[in-house]
Write a protein that binds this DNA or RNA. Structure first.
Lengths: 343, 343
DNA sequence: CTGTTAGCGCCTTCAT
DNA sequence: ATGAAGGCGCTAACAG
């Protein structure tokens, strides 16, 4: 019996449990046993097997193992995209925790998919559970459909029946941030960003409204723009043209705040003198610009880890939680709000 | 003999090919046929099957299919981490192309792994091919070992025997960038960053050296610091303390350049007057700081896509290319080099 | 055109 | 303690 375990050009497939068994002079059942480490195996044979495994560099084929044990030891993660630090950080937290739990992570980015529903269904056939980002353009139907087959957790979205959710706090922090602006004496603060772009933004706007209400003030309607750099620039230009009257801008995220601030400054406006600008996320750029951007830091890494955790427990049979789990955020005060902070 | 493939109504696992077959009153082979769409099936039965598939929401189990066809329809990607826009963009490019090619992507981040070798071996059992980032702390041994089982392509690294590489151009662009600095009259330009942190950086330093040689100048030894924000700040402080004499700093990447520039400016130094600072990558922050950071833009997205492409072709049986494929980069001149650009 | 059947590689009772 | 044998769900010959 010629051994073809040498890395011959075409026999790339590697050793199987059979070749290991033969090599060690035992049955495949024994090989499986020492590898699973569940049943007891006599030390001598155990060593023989281990030696064979080592020599042939054997690793069980994922598909075969999955088929036999009826699960994949993998988690799926569905995110819109990865530009900006938010999603990347979330992914890092998710991946790190998944790694600790010995789960592979297979990633799906919705922005690059034409047939998202198909992609998600596909994903469901290769993982044990799936975490999907709340604002991802996935119809609630798909989520529900998914949930029928695999455990699902929504990140930064609303919990639905049977689908639990994890997120960072928004409303109270937004209320605090908006309050901070108002306490600087600003009386025409505008909320820039579309509350309909997701539960997160929705709640930030709600906090903005609440802060006004707290002080017996009227909150303005939100300026509905997408959370992208280009939209911020466009908005700022409209503002420079006199389309908006405001002495403070509470932006839905830093990307928006940063582009708006830069455009305003380039046109000679003083920030925060003429108009204060604050954001949300605390991206790297926020601490490099002058004035430093006042914003809110979210525990994004932890959020990702939490999602991976919950997925694992759900797979382990734990029942889904009905209430969303919310992680606390932190107000980061720099100078763009009107404060004279260090930076 | 009894078939027990009946999908009990509440079977959480979902429908199997058997339940679909039964539901449609045909054999599993027929179901498989219409789904694979290879062989011809009479239109009537075809419709019956499709209807059953639809009603049961059937999707073939990934593991079973993989086992039968002997491949996974998935690509693996090994990256160090995801902070900063570089890796995230690379991943997006990779994922997008993989999606087009109908390949799932399973991601492994080395920074979060304690046993990297094991993680990579594991990965190899669930994908058809693997792309690993060149500077990832993966010993050449592991790569070679991997290559014996699956096609591998190295991103931004040196091609090894049987392992092809894709990368962005570094040497010539660096030569151009360094030359630009020298042509501004700078005579004590320092290279900041460790050339040993990867082939990319190595070549950037080589370009720096070449530019000097081109002009009959002597190139200084590199200031070996890690490519992280904190290291940049520390370096800048040493420089402010008089440890280095320089009128220009060519930093290995933008993160370094940005933190150095900020620290220098905070201490009252004029950039680019007292000292010019340039980076590499063209991250978002680079265009928001003042002066705008002169840097080099890499086609990161395309690089990721190229890697996915090559993986796919390698899996399809195409032979590996011996020469590395290099994508062109672009010098982005702003003001931190001494030019009086728009920003 | 369609059904039957033999694997794919591994895990897991069930005997021994 | 170890071996034999039956699936896991699906694809792909091979017969009809």
């Amino acid at each position: 019996m010629a051994k073809q375990h040498q890395a011959s050009p075409e026999a790339r497939q590697g050793a199987t449990i059979y070749s290991v068994a033969e090599h060690a002079g035992v049955s495949i059942a024994t090989v499986s046993r020492v590898l699973q480490g569940v049943t007891v195996v006599s030390e001598p044979t155990r060593q023989k097997v281990l030696a064979a495994v080592e020599e042939l560099g054997y690793v069980a084929l994922g598909a075969a193992r999955s088929l036999a044990v009826r699960h994949h030891e993998a988690h799926g993660l569905v995110l819109p995209e990865l530009s900006g630090p938010y999603y990347a950080e979330l992914l890092m937290g998710f991946e790190a925790r998944a790694a600790e739990l010995a789960q592979s992570v297979v990633l799906v980015l919705t922005d690059s998919r034409t047939d998202l529903a198909a992609a998600v269904r596909q994903l469901a056939t290769r993982v044990d559970a799936i975490a999907v980002f709340g604002s991802a353009p996935i119809s609630a139907d798909v989520v529900r459909l998914l949930r029928a087959k695999k455990p699902v957790v929504v990140i930064a979205g609303e919990p639905q029946d049977g689908v639990e959710a994890v997120s960072a706090e928004n409303l109270e922090s937004a209320r605090e941030l908006a309050g901070h602006l108002l306490d600087h004496g600003k009386r025409r603060a505008l909320f820039v960003g579309d509350p309909d772009s997701g539960p997160d933004i929705h709640n930030r706007y709600a906090g903005y409204v609440a802060a006004h209400r707290d002080r017996g003030l009227d909150a303005a309607e939100p300026v509905r723009v997408a959370l992208r750099e280009a939209e911020g620039t466009a908005f700022a230009q409209r503002m420079l043209a006199g389309a908006y009257e405001a002495d403070a801008l509470m932006c839905a995220n830093d990307e928006l705040a940063l582009s708006i601030m830069a455009t305003l400054q380039d046109a000679g406006r003083d920030v925060p003198g003429d108009v204060a600008v604050v954001g949300w996320d605390d991206v790297m750029t926020a601490r490099y610009v002058r004035p430093g951007l006042t914003t809110v830091r979210q525990p994004v890494h932890e959020l990702g880890a939490l999602a991976a955790d919950r997925l694992h427990e759900l797979v382990s049979g734990e029942p889904p939680r009905s209430r969303a789990q919310t992680l606390p955020t932190q107000l980061v005060v720099r100078s763009s709000c009107g404060c004279r902070a260090a930076t």
